[in-house]
Amino acid sequence: MKILVTGMSGTGKSSVLQELARRGHRTVDTDSDEWCEWVTDARGEPDWVWREDRIDELLAGHMDGTLFVAGCKSSQGRFSSQFDAVALLSAPAAVLLERMAARTNNPYGKSPQERALVLEHLATVEPLLRATATLEIDTTQPLSVVADRLEALAG
């Protein structure tokens, strides 16, 4: 089974993937140069998108157990038919901003510009993700509960 774990910055995608990996699942956090690249979008703006060849290879090559893939990229819709489920992680804006301010493993969300962009994406991108999600999980719950709910998707 292949499950996409998506959501805005600060929802806990990386944290829950670490917990799922600790539980023995195969996980891939796509927020790295290995899985993503900068391109220029149709409006001439920079966009951090999945490296399609690598994501195709990852998904086609997964044959056993459950694969949890985390990411929130404009290009992920191209791969939706290759996932068995899409889990949207969500939390209130104040929680996301607090988490980003406190985290030490990711610098994103520290500047006023990035924080404003997160709020904009919460209003414009999250509804699009919600419309295509199999399940939405409120990540104000304990991490173990979020991981349990994701494992339940796998059956």
Rank of each mutant, 00 (worst) to 15 (best):
T11W: 10
S14D: 08
S15I: 00
V16P: 15
L17F: 00
L20P: 06
A21H: 11
R22V: 01
T27F: 12
T27R: 13
T30H: 04
T30W: 10
S32L: 13
S32P: 05
E34Y: 04
E34S: 07
W38C: 04
D41M: 10
D41H: 07
G44D: 14
E45F: 15
P46R: 14
D47E: 09
D47K: 10
W48L: 12
W48P: 09
W50S: 01
R51Y: 11
D53W: 06
I55L: 15
D56S: 09
D56M: 06
D56F: 02
E57Y: 00
E57W: 00
L58C: 03
L58H: 02
L58I: 02
L58N: 04
L59K: 09
H62M: 01
H62C: 01
D64S: 02
F68R: 08
C72G: 01
Q76I: 13
G77N: 04
R78H: 09
F79A: 04
F79P: 10
F79C: 02
S80Q: 11
S81V: 00
Q82V: 05
F83R: 13
D84Q: 09
D84M: 08
D84P: 08
A85C: 03
V86E: 05
V86A: 05
V86P: 05
A87L: 07
A87Q: 11
L89Q: 05
S90Y: 12
A91Y: 04
A101Y: 11
A101R: 13
A101G: 14
A101P: 05
A102N: 13
T104Q: 14
T104E: 15
P107C: 01
P107T: 11
Q113T: 15
Q113G: 14
E114D: 12
R115I: 00
A116E: 15
A116Q: 15
L119W: 10
H121V: 03
T124F: 12
T124K: 15
E126N: 01
L128H: 02
L129R: 06
L129N: 05
R130F: 15
A133R: 08
A133G: 03
L135S: 03
E136I: 14
I137G: 07
T139N: 12
T140V: 14
T140P: 07
L143F: 06
L143P: 10
S144P: 00
V146P: 15
D148F: 03
L150V: 13
